[in-house]
Design a binder for these strands. Structure first.
Lengths: 342, 342
DNA sequence: ATGAAAGCGCTAACAT
DNA sequence: ATGTTAGCGCTTTCAT
């Protein structure tokens, strides 16, 4: 059995209250006894019991991290990194991060994550898009909540977001800077706030460069921004716009699909056609050519979300919205428009 | 405030002891009162407090999951899935899984994961290779321990392992079955038990097929089994063995490196050269051609490790070694040796 | 079959 | 500046 606070008290010849105060570095303890107690703690290898402490302070010491299972299981290490970033940061903040995945079609009948049922979390982070009814049920329980990489419309809670507009501008301006004027946009799920913002950035960059926006250059019909839909979108877009020289895809998965379409149809990248993505998932490096993209600081997003929620738990103040900056990564899928096209 | 056991007791007109017994489904409670109590629990939405329960039962209710950070951050979502498998399984077993990453050069001065310091776990799972001194320190503390995807020499603890030998046999036999006789092996870190076993499987399959083992066909010099080292190994191997028609790489990362080398040097896969990997990480699907490989049931590995450790916590019996079977996945990077080679 | 009560290890209000 | 003590919500032994 591990030593308890009583053992320390006895060993140091003080009361348990004194030991407790020393542990919490309370100022009204004389340096003398403090030293004495600290020494006893050390020699006995004393560590406060978390459950005892949690019981009396009525806190759980955990932060819940909720994500849909298909997000977490995505091939690209996107949300896993956000999770890991949260885990890193929580370590310092005296919290543990408890992961729970929910199905993306979570509904009224489904059980809430166990850590909610057991009231085993002090706050919750939701990563990525989740069903609204899950959010509503958590809100009902009045558990502090923060969203990372998902913008909620009601401003109940802090949102930690990628600067998607800026990313869209960076990507599009990069193409414009290379000399492209016929720039397509490939997107999906236009309901999704993040993707919408990337599109907004696209339009804004065009406007900044005084290039007219052409909605024939936009393909956002599909539901999921995945590889297959990227392929299909590229097909549609390129078949109806023979003059297109480049595409900005709303994420790397779709960009990869676009690349496949281009290859299948004899385009040389980037000589004949430039393509840029968004997210910077590592598998980009596998590609031939490596994909230019917008880097999202995933670890930082996770860390920031922990900072926000723990600071809320301390001070009860919620910042509305945090924008985490992104970065243009130029690889080899983009270049000046070639002369090789017929 | 959530209702406590007292509230339930009062509401049902019984003692708290009775409520507790009902919760634990103790047989010495009359069906009558049991029904009554259950009803009160329901109407009050009562849930036992985890910290109170943990305090009195002297358990933490958590399982620690330790992994080196570079393992977790590796491109391939390999350990992430093992972790998720553990998380899934723990849910039913009434445990939470606490993640901690350690640096791969963890040393004596480094702090143990916080959940160990705070005695906040009932058992620990170590995934993949970690420094021996970390293992020693945990063992010293007498915390129950299990290893997943890492075989320890001292048999202190259960090992949940991939059937690497069988996988090596499957991969190599697949190539043999296609008609290959000149089969190279690309590996790394020959200290690593898993990789060693895959190599053993390779040799065994050759022997089974009465194909002589040729150590010129083997390249295992590098430390990490990553893409770059796969590339370099392929270069060495192929330069000195012009007659090679196929390679079995000890994991997919190296196989991808091998593929890149082959492509860079004008080989057509699989017409000129066959290549098979090991792990089946999803990014394989991105490759051109898709990589034949040995599938490792990652989710299952994680789940199994939780089963082992929780069953140990209950019954104090440790199974020595669990082998989780693997599966041959035939894609398009392997075919009969072509006639195109010069 | 059920209840009373002690106690798990800690914190914090109140005394001294 | 330090000690006393009453709980936090639960389990479990011992009575009844």
């Amino acid at each position: 059995m591990n030593p308890t606070i009583k053992d320390v008290a006895k060993h140091a010849g003080v009361s348990t209250a004194t030991v407790s105060l020393v542990i919490h570095d309370n100022s009204r303890i004389s340096p003398e006894t403090k030293r004495k107690v600290l020494k006893s703690i050390k020699t006995l290898h004393y560590l406060p019991s978390k459950s005892a402490r949690d019981l009396v302070t009525q806190r759980a010491g955990n932060i819940g991290f909720i994500i849909t299972d298909d997000h977490f299981l995505r091939t690209e290490p996107f949300y896993t990194r956000i999770f890991l970033g949260a885990e890193f940061e929580a370590r310092d903040g005296d919290y543990y991060v408890l992961l729970a995945t929910v199905e993306s079609n979570f509904n009224e009948e489904d059980q809430l994550p166990r850590f909610i049922q057991e009231r085993n979390v002090d706050g919750i982070i939701i990563a990525g898009k989740v069903p609204q009814n899950l959010i509503d049920r958590i809100l009902e329980l009045k558990i502090p909540l923060a969203f990372v990489d998902y913008e909620t419309t009601n401003n109940c809670c802090p949102n930690i977001l990628i600067d998607n507009i800026q990313g869209g501008i960076l990507a599009t301006s990069h193409l414009i800077g290379l000399g492209h004027k016929q720039i397509g946009f490939v997107g999906a799920d236009i309901q999704h706030p993040s993707l919408l913002k990337r599109f907004t950035g696209y339009k804004q960059a065009l406007e900044n460069a005084k290039i007219g926006f052409n909605d024939k250059f936009v393909e956002t019909g599909s539901l999921y921004p995945d590889r297959q839909n990227g392929y299909d979108a590229a097909k549609k877009l390129i078949e109806k716009n023979k003059n297109l020289t480049s595409i900005f895809a709303c994420n790397d998965a779709m960009a990869i699909g676009v690349m496949h379409y281009l290859k299948d149809n004899g385009f040389k990248i980037p000589d004949d056609f430039s393509i840029i993505g968004f997210d910077d998932v590592e598998s980009d490096l596998l590609l031939d050519p490596p994909l230019s993209t917008i880097r999202v600081p995933k670890i930082e997003l996770g860390a920031e979300s922990i900072r926000i929620i723990t600071s809320y738990l301390k001070t009860k103040t919620i910042p509305k919205k945090i924008l985490v900056p992104v970065e243009l990564i130029i690889r080899q899928s983009t270049s000046a428009p070639g002369s090789k096209r017929i």
